[in-house]
């Protein structure tokens, strides 16, 4: 009884002082936390702004010399006197085309793997396949480049390409897309390697979002007699659309910016030949190959290429955001 009486008495002895101090300590802690996080967030913006600014400053001489022609010129003659003629059309073509082909291969395969893993795969196999896919993502890109160079390239050049070239020799259009001497290093080789590199992104993200579909929905669909295909088509995919597209866009971003592996196997040719079996170059491969030995306008043009890649990736991400927003609105309505 005495104990109970003592407790409030002790609290009352120094109440005002204690509470104010405790509160202000909380306040200070909170404010510090607020500023630390805010500065961190601002830091990202400052770095981003700094990168854009330094790219623009570095690219300025090239922008002033070539202007918009830079985008539509196919020639790349850095040692031409007195003014080099430099144009980004070749690298832009070489960046976009293999990325699109890689997406065309990796999206169906990646979604297929994810659907198999979440809907059809026997339990004991699930974990090993999932881990294998994630390991694919962990392989450094130079390893993919070496594999493309030493294994895939010679195979394509010795067996696959000659067969395709002779098969489509008399078919219009296709005989332009598939033509020329068999080459180890080609847009096609780069596309295949890129598709393997981006596969884990698509698969891992799709698998995660497929797992979020409420079992009740799927069971209901199975209950009314849907096949697995119908469940995937009408329940799983519509439910997870946003997540899947996010994964695909992430993969596309990776494909566009991939440097090391592609530099190894694309052949680094600035000419646009129209044939997938011909060498090409990407923006990042051109920069990686030539930057160290470049100077003056040549270097500035390479920086401008970097700026273009930045803009290109930014556009892809923006497009993805807009697409997602529209889908969400549609789903909401």
């Amino acid at each position: 009884m005495t104990d109970m009486a003592l407790e409030p008495a002790r609290a009352a002895a120094e109440p005002a002082f204690d509470r104010a101090r405790a509160l202000s300590a909380f306040k200070l802690g909170d404010r510090t936390f607020y500023w630390v996080t805010r500065v961190s967030a601002l830091f990202v913006l400052i770095i981003l702004g700094g990168i854009i600014l330094s790219l623009i400053i570095g690219a300025w001489p090239a922008i002033r010399t070539y202007g918009f022609d830079f985008l539509f010129t196919q020639r790349w003659a850095p040692s031409l006197q007195p003014t080099p003629i430099l144009g980004a059309l070749g690298p832009i073509y070489g960046t976009i085309v293999p990325s699109l082909i890689a997406m065309a291969i990796a999206i169906p395969v990646g979604l297929g793997i994810a659907i198999f893993l979440t809907e059809l795969c026997p339990m004991p196999l699930r974990q090993p396949i999932a881990v294998a896919i994630e390991l694919l993502a962990g392989i450094p890109s130079i390893i993919y480049g070496m594999w493309g160079f030493f294994v895939l390239g010679p195979f394509l050049a010795d067996h696959f390409e000659p067969a395709i070239v002779s098969a489509f020799e008399n078919v219009p259009i296709l005989n332009t897309i598939f033509q020329g001497p068999a080459s180890n290093l080609s847009l096609f080789n780069a596309s295949l390697v890129l598709s393997i590199m981006i596969l884990p992104f698509i698969t891992a993200i799709s698998r995660d979002v497929f797992a979020t579909v409420p079992p009740v929905l799927k069971e209901a669909a199975y209950g009314v007699g849907c096949t697995t295909w119908e469940v995937v088509r009408n329940v799983v995919l519509p439910y997870t659309r946003v997540g899947v597209i996010g994964g695909v866009m992430l993969a596309l971003g990776r494909a566009l910016g991939e440097t090391m592996a592609v530099t190894f196997i694309i052949g680094n040719s600035f000419k646009i030949s129209g044939s997938l079996f011909a060498p090409g170059t990407t923006i990042s491969a051109a920069i990686a190959s030539e930057f160290a030995e470049s100077d003056g306008l040549h270097q500035s043009a390479l920086i401008l290429l970097g700026l273009l890649l930045f803009v290109l990736t930014f556009c892809v991400l923006t497009a993805a955001r807009l697409m997602l927003r529209r889908l969400e609105r549609k789903a909401g309505a």
């Binding site: 040692s79 006197q81 290093l185 530099t263 600035f270 060498p279 170059t281």
Partner: peptide, 16 residues
């Protein structure tokens, strides 16, 4: 074409 450390190659594959 001319000469230089990097030139405008009309044909071929480039290796590092």
């Amino acid at each position: 074409i001319g000469s230089g450390q990097a030139v405008e190659w009309p044909v071929g594959v480039g290796a590092r």
